[in-house]
Amino acid sequence: MRPSKQKELHAAVFREVRNGFPGMRLPAERCFAARLGVARKTLRFTLARLEEEGAITRNTFGTFVRESKTVRMKESPEPVTILLPCPDYMMVTPPAIAGIHREMTLTASLVANRHGTYAVTLPVSDSNDPARINWNQLRHLHSGSLVCMNGSWFQAVFPLLAERGCRVGIISSDLKNFPRCFKEHDTDGMIVNNRRLWYFPALAATWLYGLGARKILYFGSDTAVASMVSRGAFEKALRGAGLPAEGLFRVFPSSLTLRERLRLLGGTFREKRPDALVIELNPYPLNEPEPDFYEATGIPRSVKIVTPRSRLLRQPEFAGNAYVITGNDTCGRLAEFLLSNRHGQFFTEVEEEFISGAEYAAKKFNLIF
């Protein structure tokens, strides 16, 4: 490879490192090389240079962003370990699915840095299969380890975490199994139930009614949890406010491209003429082009919109007009608990919060309005 090309590759890989956080695992070499359009041998040369420069560290489990020496002090607390289903999970999984893990990892990293430590991610399996856990990956966890995880998939690893005496923070909708696990093992930890956010269309409808909306349309993918479980709650919320409910909960097939989804949304809007929208357009492929929301739908900019996290919020005009429903810093609360001196078992529910799309985009995408 020519020196100029090698320099470009070094800069590209370093950007990945700089945009990451201490302990973040970089993509597997084969996937990373394919994405960068170079041979694995060439990529290895660049990684070796970055390791010499102290930007990354490599071992048998992969390549990781190296912790900052200014952050990791000799007597600093334990790092916060975020368990992931499999390697490269957040690189290859659509944001709507991996969103909680992304937020958990980034928030834990920020909180940990305030406490003089850092956050790391740890894949526990080569696939999202509880029967194929790589127990060797968990061998370093010990009494005092701080572990965050999400989802009932991790029921299989919980007994080991309890046996080792780890402090555990969980975000889950499984209120049957996780509390039982805690009680059986008498482990210090906190569970945050996020099931309430499954019904965000109903929560959003009530909130929009308070803003003066009088005809509210839900439009979501058939693979979105909200589309599968919240129709009844949404229609009940509308009727409870004295609003029309018939035919205002629309679900589209997830096989549609984003452009097709937006075109269908525009047609549904013209058919129903609502004055407010609750939309869930995720998930769609990471590499799919994102048309301008207003040009693709023809929806007036005066229409109030509520959405969960979405990459469309990178469009300044859409973000400036939309509202985002979030879990009120749930991940931050978990990380703060793990790094505190509190002992015992704590169960709490997520508290929804509506923030402007511009505020959300400024935090998540560093957009300036």
Rank of each mutant, 00 (worst) to 15 (best):
N341C: 13
P285E: 08
S76F: 10
R167Y: 04
P3R: 13
A12V: 03
V92F: 15
L203N: 00
I355C: 10
K364R: 12
H101I: 08
F178S: 02
P22K: 03
K74T: 15
G210Q: 11
G220H: 06
V71W: 12
A33V: 04
T105C: 14
P130L: 07
S125C: 14
W153I: 03
V157M: 03
G298F: 12
Q345F: 09
V124C: 09
V350H: 03
L26V: 06
T42S: 13
P94K: 09
G99N: 10
A276F: 06
M228C: 14
R2M: 13
P179C: 12
G332E: 06
R239Y: 06
Q155I: 03
M24W: 01
L312G: 00
A12G: 03
R250V: 15
W153E: 03
P308E: 05
C86N: 14
S255A: 14
F337C: 06
Y284T: 02
R333N: 09
G116M: 09
N287V: 11
V251A: 03
F354K: 02
E271C: 04
F249I: 05
E8F: 02
F182I: 06
W198H: 15
P85G: 09
A112F: 03
L26Y: 04
R167N: 01
G169I: 04
A322S: 14
E280T: 05
R102I: 15
L217W: 00
Y218T: 11
S254I: 04
R250E: 14
P22W: 00
Y323S: 07
D275C: 06
L110N: 10
C181P: 00
N282S: 15
A245Y: 04
A322L: 07
G23F: 01
F154W: 06
D292P: 05
R239F: 05
M91C: 15
V38G: 00
I82Y: 01
V120C: 12
G54F: 03
H343S: 15
L258E: 11
E29R: 06
F61N: 04
D292L: 10
L122Y: 07
L175H: 12
D126H: 09
G267I: 08
P291D: 13
L256F: 07
L312E: 01
P285D: 08
L203T: 01
P289Q: 09
P179V: 12
